[in-house]
């Protein structure tokens, strides 16, 4: 099963980063390329089991479910339920770690998934280059403002 990963050390305190990330239903506030994001049924975005509906700026749509969230460990996990490309068994994790010696915060974003072998590289590159990398860069910029 392919696994992709991207990470960075951001200057912002971990609690500020985490407050942004844990707001599962408002991804459009910080992730470039996302035009709309809403929790289906209007429930709380941080409720495990919540499903968010995303509309990207190119008009493609995704449905993703929050499957784990820990305010103690500063981690959350979500799964893509529907995407405009073939993907199954998807599980992504976002993790924040305070860098207690030296300052700043580590943010790691990883995902595992299944798809046709000839699509694996392209799908993985999409996640890293179109989602993870610009996402962490946008977090850095947004929280520095």
């Amino acid at each position: 099963m392919p696994r992709v990963f991207h990470s960075a050390i951001l200057k912002a305190p971990s609690d500020r980063i985490w407050q942004v990330l844990r707001d599962f239903g408002r991804l459009h506030r910080w992730l470039p390329g996302i035009a709309q994001c809403a929790v289906e049924g209007g429930g709380a975005g941080d409720r495990v089991g919540a499903v968010r509906h995303l509309v990207a700026r190119d008009g493609t749509e995704f449905r993703e479910q929050l499957v784990a969230l820990s305010d103690y460990d500063l981690t959350l996990a979500y799964s893509i339920l529907e995407a405009p490309f073939e993907i199954t068994d998807h599980l992504a994790e976002l993790r924040v770690i305070p860098v207690t010696e030296g300052g700043g915060s580590f943010v790691g974003w990883s995902a595992e998934f299944s798809c046709q072998p000839d699509r694996q590289e392209r799908t993985g590159q999409f996640m890293v280059n179109e989602v993870f990398r610009p996402g962490l860069a946008a977090l850095e910029r947004g929280l520095a403002a």
Binding site: F5, H6, S7, A8, I9, I97, F106, G108
Partner: peptide
């Protein structure tokens, strides 16, 4: 140990 993609370094927790 976590890899740090942007620096090539690591974070140890």
């Amino acid at each position: 140990v976590f890899g740090v993609s942007t620096t090539g370094g690591a974070v140890l927790r």
